[in-house]
Design a binder for these strands. Sequence first.
DNA 1: GGCCGGCGTCAAGAACGCGCCAAGGCCATC
DNA 2: GATGGCCTTGGCGCGTTCTTGACGCCGGCC
Lengths: 226, 226
Amino acid sequence: MARILLVDDDAQLLRALRINLTARGYVVVTAADGTGALTAAARTPPDLAVIDLGLPDLDGVTVVQGLRGWTGLPVIVLSARDAEAAKVAALDAGADDYVTKPFGMDELLARIRAALRRAAPAPDSGDATITTAAFTIDLAAKRLTTAAGEVRLTPTEWHLLEILARNPGKVIDHRRLLREVWGPAYGNETNYLRVHFANLRRKIEPDPARPRYVVTEPGLGYRFTP
Amino acid sequence: MARILLVDDDAQLLRALRINLTARGYVVVTAADGTGALTAAARTPPDLAVIDLGLPDLDGVTVVQGLRGWTGLPVIVLSARDAEAAKVAALDAGADDYVTKPFGMDELLARIRAALRRAAPAPDSGDATITTAAFTIDLAAKRLTTAAGEVRLTPTEWHLLEILARNPGKVIDHRRLLREVWGPAYGNETNYLRVHFANLRRKIEPDPARPRYVVTEPGLGYRFTP
DNA sequence: GGCCGGCGTCAAGAACGCGCCAAGGCCATC
DNA sequence: GATGGCCTTGGCGCGTTCTTGACGCCGGCC
């Protein structure tokens, strides 16, 4: 289920939201201030963030910009009723949606569902399985099967393969791969990519020395060709 | 500019919105009821729709579903303050966003901008292929194919070609090319350009000695002519 | 006619990126 | 406390790419 990052300095509200969301099956991570939110998001990027604009340390808009710098995850912003200027600023900074306090839990849940639905860029390709001559990727079930049987991939290998497989034929930057898998602090550690792609190829390529599906574009990045 | 479909039975509000939106450069189409909205959208699909939930003939949720049946265009829904149930229903029906009446014009405009921005996540993949008589450039996939087959370009060659191809017909300065590819510290190393453009021409020009597509403008820079 | 600056071409050495291997550390599980 | 899986880190060799310098060509200018 989706991971949701909650950011608010009101411990009571945080607790209420956590209970409601976990009851719906979401995995909830919380932070009480802006820096905590950014570090938490950097460590393990969530699928969606709910951010209160009135934080003790950073402006909520700053937090939104900090996230938008490296990830496209949907962001829902919370704030007091009369702060229309802040609303506009947050939306223009890249927030996806806005909820005014006080709000009904049903409304927030509906907006979260809507945002997550939008974020799944292609609902057909989200649940779809990608099939090649050598193997089949089931993105939803996180399963990869070859003619020889099922293959176990490590989390990083999955993450890398998934990004490539969702953009078939396209070259994905070194930087983008590193940012999406390891977080915004990474960008030059191309050796990570070399090692993990080598391991991945050893598992899924018919001839790992001459890869057919996970192709290197020297100096640019990597490409998945179905 | 973007086409926006406005659906509301309040003629006064419709007029006010039309004035404000056209003033911002949007093209506005209006409808006063649900059936009118659906037929208008079917005739010439807009880029975004703003729909009031309280229509005389159809339920607003029905209109949203009617649109969602065949198009993915972003939909913003309007309704009275106390209709939280309708809000939830509309969002789950596929509406992208929700604004409560009465609302400030700035907020609506910000939400429209946000929705349009989300809806156009791939401006590069749309116009990203440039075709000439001799070859095709796919900027998104970083692929270049000629009649003879696919051609591999080095990173610098790609970078140079991409800058020229994104400004077809325009002369690009030596300095700008050097700065964009090699960094701000470079500006006089025109010999780099000579070498790399020579290599590039050898790969993509039918007659590299007499270039047709990557043309030198002596003393000024280089130009891409499709 | 001779000079000069800008451009294209070529070739050689340096630098870089990549695949591969192997050792070490961290964490969770048993 | 031991084990095993996974990620990180460093080093090595190879091929490609970039840089650098030299040379010839062409057109404009004195």
